[in-house]
Every structure is written in structure tokens, then in C-alpha cells.
């Protein structure tokens, strides 16, 4: 081992491995050397001291489900992906205006904006997330696994996965014969308009006014076999195919209001998603029972919110 002019023992022969002073006259040389002083590498030990441990990864997929609509959820979910139920506060979304069916008066928060309830929901969500991360395991409200048949849990390594599984994921069901064809060509269009008779019945005399001028008809081609009627919410990741937020703008429509589903035979059904102000099928006198799927023939009008009429037509 070489010794430098300052008395350091150096693991290199050219410069001192402590102070960098040249060790002998022959030191220096070119600007770069090849390998050959491998002794230096011996000191290497601990790498990988970064990383924050595994604390943030919390257990998931132990069969939790939404207490409101029973769609499976994970512990980390703040809101139900299906109905928007807030797991922390145990409440349904209340951002939309609520119509008193008798007086037509507006209750609840304001039609647009409604930041206070959104902030509350966010705060509650943070609390839920924090609780989820802190508690190692969750007791209580453990429902039986909701994994659909034919999609078994991989045995042996279920609980610690960062993945969510189940039929309600962002993958369309395998088309019947599994013969490759991805999605059927769209064959239906939704015609959206406003209806004054409906407005007079549910909201007339209240605080909401009928759109003036009449916005006329608009058409949405229905792509896919599940079509959500509702109002967009960036904060909750709700983007309805039939979006009645501005410019359509019916403030009495819930973010997740009603679902249209197309069966394998091409026929459509309608389900009210327990919307605040209900869904009217065929005529506007009696609202549908919530969470109940009903056939929806083409041409039959559907009424939602304060004045919106939706009718399906063949494309």
C-alpha cells in the first residue's frame, strides 16, 4: 500500500485516496485511465438505502364491497367507482340540486360549483385513506369475495396485491363467441331535448327556470353497451356518455343518474342509479324504482333532472 506525502495510506498508486495529493513523480499521466485500480471498489457496500419501506402499500382485495350498491371496492377507494358513495362519511354524493317534487323548490347546494360539499368529501377521503394506510388490517365490514365465477383469486398470494380485480374493471366483457371482434358497431343514437310539460310538473314555480332560448335537439351516438346519463365531475372521475352538465346543463341531474345497458340481442334497458331527483320512464308522472332495470324500447322517452328528455332511436 502506498503512502502519500501527508502520511495517508492510499489504496491507489497514483493519487492519495484520502487527500488526492500525488503519490510519486510518476503520477499523473493522461486525463483518463482504464480500469486496473479495482481495489477501490472493495469499499462498496450499502446501496438501495433509498425507498420508503412498504408501509404505504396497504392490503387490498379482501372482498370489500360498496355498502350502497355492492360493487366490489378496495380499501384504498375513497369513493365507490360505481355509485359515488363516500366510504368515509357514509354518504351519497349530494352535489346536485335536489328538487322538491311537490313545490318544485330547490334544496341542497347550488346547482353549479358546490365547492363546500366537494371539499368536505375530499377531507373525508383523506381521513379514510390515512386510516387505510395506518391500519395494517381491516376488521369488520368484510364481505364475501365478490369475484365473479370463472375469475378465481390466484390462490396462495391473494391479499397483498396492488391490483384490483373483478368484473367492474375497465375491460368490456368478452363478446359472446370470443371471436376477436372487439366492439359491436354502434346502432343507436340518443336524442336529447328539453320538455316543458315535464318541467312544469317537477320544477315549475321553483327556483329553476326553463332554458331560454330552447337549446333544441342534440344527438349522442351510443358507443359501447353501458351508457351513463349524468353530469361530469372531474374531481370524482365521472364522465357520462350522455353528459348533462353545461352546455346541456340540467342542474337537477345527478352526476351518476341513470344507466343504459344494451343486451346481446341489441335491446336496451334503463336503470335509475338512486338519483336525487329520480328517473321517469315513458311518461313523467311516476318515477322509476331506484336500482331496478327496466326494458327501454326505442322511441320511449326518458325524463331526468328538471327538464331533460332522452329518447333512443335506431342509428
Amino acid at each position: 500500500m502506498a503512502t502519500c506525502p501527508n502520511g495517508h495510506e492510499s489504496s491507489w498508486e497514483d493519487f492519495c485516496s484520502t487527500c488526492g495529493d500525488p503519490i510519486s513523480e510518476s503520477a499523473g499521466g493522461g486525463g483518463s485511465t482504464g480500469a486496473g485500480d479495482a481495489g477501490a471498489a472493495e469499499a462498496s457496500a450499502a446501496t438501495g438505502a433509498t425507498g420508503g419501506g412498504d408501509a404505504a402499500k396497504s392490503a387490498s382485495e379482501i372482498g370489500l364491497s360498496c355498502p350502497h350498491c355492492s360493487v366490489s371496492r378496495t380499501e384504498e377507494d375513497v369513493f365507490c367507482e360505481s355509485c359515488g358513495y363516500d366510504f368515509a362519511s357514509g354518504t351519497l354524493p349530494t352535489e346536485e340540486a335536489s328538487l322538491d317534487p311537490v313545490s318544485g323548490a330547490l334544496s341542497g347546494s347550488t346547482p353549479s360549483g358546490s365547492t363546500p360539499s366537494a371539499t368536505n368529501a375530499a377531507a373525508a377521503g383523506a381521513a379514510a385513506a390515512a386510516a387505510g394506510a395506518a391500519a395494517g388490517s381491516v376488521t369488520g365490514e368484510v364481505a364475501p369475495p365478490t369475484t365473479p365465477p370463472g375469475d378465481p383469486q390466484p390462490s396462495g398470494k391473494a391479499p397483498e396485491s396492488a391490483f384490483k380485480k373483478g368484473a367492474d374493471g375497465p375491460v368490456a366483457p368478452d363478446p359472446a363467441g370470443a371471436t376477436g371482434e372487439a366492439t359491436a358497431a354502434p346502432d343507436t343514437v340518443a336524442v336529447i331535448s328539453v320538455d316543458r310539460d315535464f318541467f312544469e310538473r317537477v320544477a315549475g314555480g321553483g327556483e329553476l327556470s326553463f332554458p331560454d332560448p330552447d337549446p333544441g335537439e342534440s344527438r349522442v351516438t351510443l358507443v359501447g353497451n353501458e351508457i351513463l346519463i349524468g353530469r361530469r365531475s372531474d374531481s370524482r372521475g365521472i364522465y357520462p356518455e350522455i353528459d348533462l352538465s353545461p352546455p346541456m346543463d340540467d342542474p337537477a341531474v345527478s352526476h351518476r343518474h341513470a344507466m343504459l345497458r344494451q343486451g346481446a340481442d341489441g335491446s336496451w334497458t334503463l336503470t335509475d342509479l338512486d338519483s336525487t331527483n329520480g328517473t321517469y320512464l315513458g311518461d313523467h308522472t311516476v318515477s322509476m324504482a331506484p336500482n331496478t332495470e327496466k326494458p327501454l324500447p326505442l322511441g320511449t322517452p326518458v325524463f331526468v333532472g328538471a327538464y331533460t328528455k332522452v329518447t333512443l332511436e335506431a342509428l
Binding site: G20, G31, A35, G36, D37, A41, T47
Partner: peptide
């Protein structure tokens, strides 16, 4: 004169090159 830096490349902790900054 002083060595200001020795710049080494390591792959899986094994040194594969070294150069000098003086």
C-alpha cells in the same frame, strides 16, 4: 497538483472504468 475527482463506472457494484479529474 491534486486529484479533484476520480470518476468510476460501476455495473452491479463492479468497477468497469475510471477517469481522473485533476
Amino acid at each position: 497538483e491534486r486529484l479533484a475527482a476520480r470518476v468510476m463506472l460501476v455495473v452491479d457494484d463492479e468497477q468497469v472504468s475510471a477517469s481522473l479529474v485533476r
